[in-house]
Amino acid sequence: MKTKSFLEAADVDRMLDAAVAEATTNNWAVTIAIVDEGGHLLALRRLDGCAPIGAHICVEKARSSALGRRETKGYEEMINNGRTAFLSAPAQGFLEGGVPVVVDGHVVGAVGVSGVKSDQDAQVAKAGIAAL
């Protein structure tokens, strides 16, 4: 049997704090979600000024990234390049800004961010992950 890492509460707090710091440094009003490998919500933080819809979108980005084991940017590019049938897939977070957390080659969760431009959302997510 193989063993696998998993996110602990301290890891989640560290990632969330780093993502908030990145957003705050850039004066970006975003919402940040962190999920486990199954897409289950572990943390959510909506910064002042972020639209309420961000809380829904960032969770879906994180969930899609965790379950798909890839950045959601790939899904957005796929759709933009003409594979619009993918829009009928059951997940909803097909915009850039969902980034998987990979430890020892295994996806152990994901960070999803919503509120600014998609590449900026991804920047905040990656800053959170880098804190691990």
Rank of each mutant, 00 (worst) to 15 (best):
A23K: 06
D36L: 04
V108R: 00
A23P: 08
E96K: 13
G39E: 11
R63Q: 11
V12Q: 08
H106S: 09
G74L: 12
V12G: 01
N81W: 06
N80A: 14
V102C: 12
I34G: 07
E77P: 00
A130P: 13
V35F: 11
T25K: 15
E71D: 15
L41D: 06
K73P: 05
H106L: 03
R63T: 15
I53D: 02
D17L: 11
A29H: 08
A91T: 08
G98H: 02
A127L: 03
A127G: 01
A19T: 02
G38N: 15
D17E: 11
R69D: 00
V108K: 00
V59R: 08
M1T: 09
D104I: 00
A43D: 09
P52T: 05
G105R: 00
D104V: 00
R45C: 06
P90H: 10
V20K: 12
A131C: 07
A62D: 11
R83C: 08
N81M: 13
A85Q: 15
L47V: 05
T31P: 04
A110N: 08
G128K: 00
A91P: 10
S118P: 09
Q123D: 11
K2M: 12
T3H: 11
V102D: 08
A89T: 11
A10P: 11
A29L: 01
A9P: 09
G74W: 10
S88G: 14
L44H: 05
A29W: 05
R70D: 03
G93F: 02
G54Q: 02
R14S: 03
